[in-house]
Design a protein around this nucleic acid. Sequence first.
DNA 1: AGTCAGACTTGAGGATTATTCAAGATGGAT
DNA 2: ATCCATCTTGAATAATCCTCAAGTCTGACT
Lengths: 313, 313
Amino acid sequence: MDRAPLNALQVFVTAARAQNMTRAAERLHLTVSALSHQVRLLEQRLGVTLFVRGPRGLKPTAEGAMLLQRVGAHLDAIDEALQPLRARRDCVLSISALPSLASSWLMPRLPRFVAQHPDFEFNLDSSIERVDFADGRFDGALRYGPGNWDGVTAELLFEEWLTPVASPALLAGRARPRLEELGEWPLLSPDDPWPRWFEQFGGKEPKRYVATFSDSDTLQRATVEGMGVSLGRATLMRPLVESGRLVVLFPERMKARYAHHLVYPERSIRHKGFQAFREWLHAEAAAFRDSGAADAMPLAAAATRPKRAKRGA
Amino acid sequence: MDRAPLNALQVFVTAARAQNMTRAAERLHLTVSALSHQVRLLEQRLGVTLFVRGPRGLKPTAEGAMLLQRVGAHLDAIDEALQPLRARRDCVLSISALPSLASSWLMPRLPRFVAQHPDFEFNLDSSIERVDFADGRFDGALRYGPGNWDGVTAELLFEEWLTPVASPALLAGRARPRLEELGEWPLLSPDDPWPRWFEQFGGKEPKRYVATFSDSDTLQRATVEGMGVSLGRATLMRPLVESGRLVVLFPERMKARYAHHLVYPERSIRHKGFQAFREWLHAEAAAFRDSGAADAMPLAAAATRPKRAKRGA
DNA sequence: AGTCAGACTTGAGGATTATTCAAGATGGAT
DNA sequence: ATCCATCTTGAATAATCCTCAAGTCTGACT
């Protein structure tokens, strides 16, 4: 016996702890017969009787108890060490998504994926944090950005579109602005600059912006509080518009510099569950793009297809 | 993955430590191809790349190094735990024998056994200590005694015979005693009492014995030193008689109360190597008994078959 | 630049081990 | 005596392990 009969030892330990072949077999998803054979062969191989068999189960012999004591904890530790990897097995997958995208776009669609893969365990973490894939917690992430992050693969899902939105409170008692009048309203500075908007749709930038926020969530909250008008991302603002907390001012839209991507490490290529999710996600994104809904934002009163700003100088 | 792929982990650990598939394969007595396959399947199963392959060997990835760190020591410990059992494998056997019997009876015969089993590893420990088989160090023992020890099986090998012996120094300048005169000589008290001797062969016990020794080795040494005449066991004294350090006084022999036995625990029944040894030993002992040599002690001058004392009142 | 050797990979097929199935034995409870 | 739970065992099947053969890749050497 050069190499330790590790699998048989694991079977032995389970049987020794249960003191019942039937229960141990259940735990190991084997038949009682398989365990009986394995234990018998282990006894022959080690030259030692490990169990006293009885009509109501079995008891370890003194040598069996000693062996259990010596190897049991180590087998436990090895099993424990594999737990992080086990969680990454092909039918378990963990995805991180921006909360806004999760709630506005992914969650309404996810039941279709889950229905197609009833054996999968899907874990969704809503976070705006940048994902460090090195720790192995996530198989992929849905992120908004340029798509050229280092060390990971980023695959375009769909573009983002921007349009001015404001809270009903800000609009109260005032007439809706026309495009060229927008510069006279209090504007909140977002990630994507207003200048490109005015350049495309006319009007003059204000002399100053009421406030500037680098954080999209804070910008969003400020808009909802009526602090001013902001250029809202369609996917971010959609739930707020649909709930009436924000109002879309114009049917016009401007494409954002950044887009939504599926981001993942190289190792996830070999993760079958992740591959299934990835294929499904790209199909859903393609359908989303093809339907034109990617840049659609329901207006407060009507849901006609908006006229896009033409590309040009 | 319900059960940890323990064999593959063991292969992985060996390869990770060697950082060389070729060397690791040698250590595990496998082909490089077998290791390559095993490691690749483990990587697929765990969903993780464990090695960076290079032209001069391989290096663990960060995940591989972590896995090695987590499971390596435990696999070592399990291997260590099996060591006592591994030493008991079928072709390795450990026997304890009385030094006197070992040198006078067993060693002259053992080469025949070893020649018949060139693949065996035979370990002989010469000791008069009672063997505690619970610690697993020995598979069997050759012991002299009543043969009814608790908790072990004792199988008779051959009887022991007693006869008076003395050192040449004691005899110097004195005529050899006749049987009926023996009571007048300085006698050393051994385990088996002189009374039975006198009862069987006539003569009177001395009023006192010069000395009494409970230990056979000490009794033997005292005899060699010329302290007196002792009733020597044929097997114990044979080498001393053959080397001229002791002299057999009479051809008469008396059967000892005790006999030589092969003693072993129940678990050795399943030890193939031990079974082979046991069968061989019984055959040698039977031949020894049948040849009448069991009670033969070469006389100082002639090797005629000695006249045995008749059994009777 | 070409050759060689060391190291590892991969597919195919055979060998070995693991597992299931079916039939049976054993002993406690009723 | 019967029933049930538990385990055993032989035979057959399934799965895993391993070897063989052919191949790739890279560094060292000429």
